[in-house]
Design a protein around this nucleic acid. Structure first.
Length: 682
DNA sequence: AACTTGTCAATTTTT
DNA sequence: TTGACAAGTT
């Protein structure tokens, strides 16, 4: 088998064919980095490396799927593509933990806690720690604490070695107390959170030399995509996997590092050559996406950052259209003009899906949505959490989880009184206290609830009965879907969904969600039988966010700058290019609960990179818009142009003053209100 | 267990 | 000005 590397440009080819030792590929936006990884894998296979010995790691499931698909396409061989290890860091970590569950001390398996499970565990851990909610003392924001714990884990800091950086920082002091409690809580529930999926394999490798050796021999070539987004723990994991041979190829762009606030450490890419001696560095600077004008703007902005490898994107394509810098008097007018401009350009022959509107923070989408609706422009919003829409699915999963693993106290508490069966908070507290005092699990306490008197008794008996029946059914090798249906009957789940929903349609949607889960379970149970297979599937499920972004639709895309990374559009609007929005106020004036230190500097260079990411999304035409005035917290506030806007050379820009033209068509307040009310009524 | 009232804050998010 | 969240009422 051979690969035709002549389809690559010289640096791409160099990267794809380098096989001896560490390699850093600095891939500028739109420079064809996925192509390089794919050809590199094909090349490795062609020189006789077995597919099982090749591993490619990504950050998202989407990227992993896309990669596997494109390799299958290039090789015209699905079987080989299937043998490659391609997956997210978390999926790889899970695979390791699962394989080694014996050595880990969880022979019976373990659960994976997602964000909401995590918050539940944390709130539980926070309870009982003094100085909160008592004595008029300040209360702690659980989310801010979770961030600190997560950052500590990502930085590979164990619960007992967390050292407060700053004595005056209450959140640091609180983290010292809560982090160990939180970790104990997970341990008691036989659960790992997402961060553990990275950290725990590494700890295991260090603790157990045999296991460490085994995994160091597993892969002969390892590739990491989006390397600028890796954290300390992920780096350690990769180091452990390649320590025998150093055949590590990392691909990334230091100029697109926009996730340091959640633990990503840009040092990993900046100091790669120091950490991996003899590393070869290849820069991909030829851009296949944008016009000269767009790239000139991007290059000009990013050039103001220090601490970077330094790249200058270039292209063989033409100058293209000038960048429009539109200045509106108010944010309403800005949004309205964007909506109308899109309508206008669409009429000239663009598809709706050719447009994207990019903004710094989600709240900026509100005005846009109103104006787009008014102008009858179809749109989709990327991102946005839909946790609660999936609540019913998570509830059913929790039942299954508890049936498989009664130690999972958090899952147990989630469904103990769902659907409501008269087991109130007081009862739960009493049960938990008694159980823990006797060194029992909560489930043990429930199982002997004959001793319990009072109104909760019947509820507990009913719950224990339902779960026991589910477990027996699973243990006896019954069909998973059958068992789940019996449970749904037992607990009258659909009746509860119908009662709780506001409308028939809403109820049906939720029931359909549950049926969707049953469908997925059915499809899965054909592949693997038994409780072990089910447990494995449930763990996998928590890693699948399955955010079905409707990509197919003919719609304008609305997304944050973060959400836009990796995407491209013929026409891009970046809105709100104002100080305190981009760069965001919070980076200019950090809050008490913010983590501000040398490692996670909330400096404006990351905001500048965000701006760079936004600009480089545009293929043909870029619009940069801002308002002179914006209503914030009920008050109209004057705005100043973003410093990044001023970094773009004037000759690349055409300024449009929207003050006059927009003012003429804006309805007066009364008329506006009238139409707003009309819109609300349907 | 469903409502009401008060308080506080106001980025970015994948797994 | 909104919205989320927690504590207090019915």
């Amino acid at each position: 088998m051979s690969v035709d590397l002549s389809k690559l440009n010289p640096p791409q080819r160099e990267a794809a064919s380098h096989t001896g030792g560490p390699l850093l590929v600095l891939a500028g936006a739109g420079s064809g980095k996925t192509r390089v990884i794919i050809y590199r894998i094909a090349h490795l296979l062609s020189i006789g490396i077995p597919p099982r010995a090749i591993c490619a790691v990504t950050f998202t499931n989407k990227a992993a799927e896309e990669m596997r698909e494109r390799i299958a396409q290039l090789l015209k061989d699905k079987a080989v593509a299937r043998e490659l290890t391609i997956g997210t860091f978390h999926a790889l970590g899970l695979q390791i933990l699962r394989t080694e569950r014996q050595a880990l001390g969880y022979p019976g398996g373990f659960a994976i806690y997602d964000q909401s499970d995590q918050m539940g565990a944390l709130r539980e851990a926070m309870r009982g720690v003094h100085n909160m909610s008592r004595d008029g003392e300040r209360r702690f924001d659980a989310k801010a604490l979770m961030t600190r714990i997560s950052l500590a884990k990502n930085a590979f800091v164990a619960p007992d070695s967390y050292i407060p950086k700053n004595e005056a920082d209450d959140y640091d002091a609180m983290t010292v107390e809560v982090y160990p409690k939180y970790q104990e809580m997970l341990r008691a529930c036989a659960a790992f959170d997402f961060d553990d999926l990275i950290v725990e394999p590494v700890r295991l490798f260090e603790r157990n030399a045999d296991v460490g050796r085994k995994w160091a021999e597993r892969f002969h070539y390892v590739m990491v995509d989006e390397f600028q987004d890796t954290n300390q723990a992920q780096l350690r994991m990769v180091q452990a996997l390649v320590k025998n041979h150093g055949n590590l190829c990392v691909v990334g762009d230091d100029d697109q590092s926009i996730y340091s606030w959640r633990g990503a450490d840009p040092t990993n890419i900046l100091r790669f050559a120091e950490m991996f001696a003899g590393a070869k560095i290849v820069k991909l600077e030829q851009n296949y996406r944008s016009t000269k004008t767009v790239l000139a703007a991007a290059n000009a902005v990013i050039a103001n950052n220090t601490k970077r490898h330094g790249k200058t994107l270039w292209t063989q394509s033409g100058d293209g259209e000038i960048i429009t810098h539109a200045v509106a008097s108010t944010a309403e007018i800005e949004a309205q003009w964007v909506a109308r401009e899109i309508r206008k350009v669409q009429k000239e022959g663009r598809r709706w899906s050719d447009f994207a509107i990019l903004y710094r923070s989600n709240m900026q989408s509100k005005l846009l949505e109103e104006e787009l609706r008014a102008a009858e422009v179809p749109y989709v919003m990327y991102g946005g959490q839909q946790f609660f829409e999936r609540k019913e699915v998570k509830d059913l999963i929790a039942y299954l989880r508890v049936a498989l693993n009664p130690r999972d106290e958090l899952g147990l508490r989630r469904v103990l009184n769902y659907p409501a069966r008269g087991i109130g908070a007081t009862t739960v507290e009493r049960l938990v206290t008694t159980a823990h005092a006797k060194h029992q699990t909560l489930w043990d306490a429930l199982a002997v609830a004959e001793n319990i008197t009072g109104p909760a008794k019947n509820g507990i008996l009913g719950f224990v009965h339902a779960v026991t029946r589910l477990r027996d059914s699973l243990d006896n090798g019954h069909d998973v879907v059958e068992a789940a249906r019996a449970l749904i009957e037992d607990i009258a789940l659909y009746d509860d969904l119908r009662a709780a929903a506001g409308s028939m349609a809403a109820a049906q949607r939720r029931i359909d969600n549950v049926e969707g889960l049953l469908g997925a379970l059915k499809r899965h149970s054909e592949k693997g039988k038994g409780r072990d297979a089910l447990a494995q599937y449930l763990r996998q499920l928590s890693l699948d966010t399955t955010d079905e972004k409707e990509t197919g639709g003919e719609k304008v895309v609305l997304t944050t700058l973060h959400g836009a990374k990796g995407l491209e559009f013929p026409v891009c609007f970046m809105i709100g290019l104002e100080e305190e929005l981009l760069p965001h106020a919070r980076t200019l004036q950090p809050q008490v609960s913010d983590v501000v230190d040398a490692d996670h500097a909330t400096d404006i260079s990351e905001e500048r990179r965000l701006c760079y990411v936004g600009i480089t999304r545009a293929q043909r035409k870029l619009y940069l818009t801002r308002a002179c005035t914006r209503v914030s917290r009920g008050r109209s506030v004057p705005r100043t142009p973003s410093r990044f806007l001023l970094e773009i050379p004037d000759e690349l820009l055409e300024v449009r003053d929207l003050g006059e033209e927009a003012r003429q068509v804006v309805p007066t307040n009364e008329v506006g209100d009238f139409f707003a009310k009309l819109a609300l009524e349907d």
